[in-house]
Amino acid sequence: MAAGTQDAALAPSFAERHAGTIRALRLYARTFARNGSAMLGLAIVLLFLTTAAIGPWIVPFPEDAAGAIHLDIKLQPPDAVHWFGTDEVGNDVFTRVVLGTRVTLQIACIVTGVAMLIGVPLGMIAGFVGGWVQEAIMRVTDVFLSVPGLVLAIAIVGALGPGIVNAMLALSLVWWPGYVRLVQAKTLALKNEIYVQAARSMGASSLRIVFVHILPNCTSPIMVKASMDMGMAILGAASLGFLGLGAQPPFPEWGAMISVARTYLPDWWWYSFFPGVAIAVTVLGFNLLGDGLRDILDPKHRE
């Protein structure tokens, strides 16, 4: 073979090698940018991530995070100094809501991450192997799915004892079955795809088929679900916090804050109102983002 002409093929530029990917990404970006609600979701999530990243350096009263006591300024309504007012021991609510983003993000990532780590492999094994293995995995999944997640999580925390780590653990343990269902269904469908048959006819091993042909084609629905689940996990953690089973006051966690604040309703409304708004907006942001991702990742929505 002529070496000269081959060299061009051997060392194509990065842009050439990834031209297809770049084109696809550009298409994704354009579709996404046209979708107003998805962009709003993205904006909220970005704001949330930035706040979590730089929160401790921008808050006006960092010492209020751990529960400093300034009884002289307790339960002040929102004003120029305390934007969201102060709580029953004089801590700045704005500071505590901002610092709450970091722990909330931590909870959301860990819960969804652990759920995916458990659920995706199980779903893939169930769908690909089939037979009694599938039966076993799916029946256990069904049992978990038949009990309302939060109730089960409450039971688990009840057994382990309240606390933020245990709350995350409990939520992760009730969250994975959704991924098993999703991935198993997708794997079952993909297993019969002609390109999987083609790979088998070329002698690809099962491992190769799973990792090269099935898993990459599952990533879109997994990403969509993960994005939605981030919101749901935040809500779950806040609920546990609210019930006194998650983070403990004075730890700046939104659910725990509302739990204390609810006794000060309705006269000192700002104390519970702002953490509540934070939860609602964040969950909304993740859901809108998930919807937007589904729109661009699901080929049926394109063309």
Binding site: E193, I194, A198, M202, G203, A204, H213
Partner: peptide, 25 residues
Amino acid sequence: FQDPHSALNPRMTILRSVAEPLVLH
């Protein structure tokens, strides 16, 4: 196969698809 549209993995470049049997054997 009959349907070329579904006989190629949508996530793989043409290079990777055609290279697959060579990589395997």
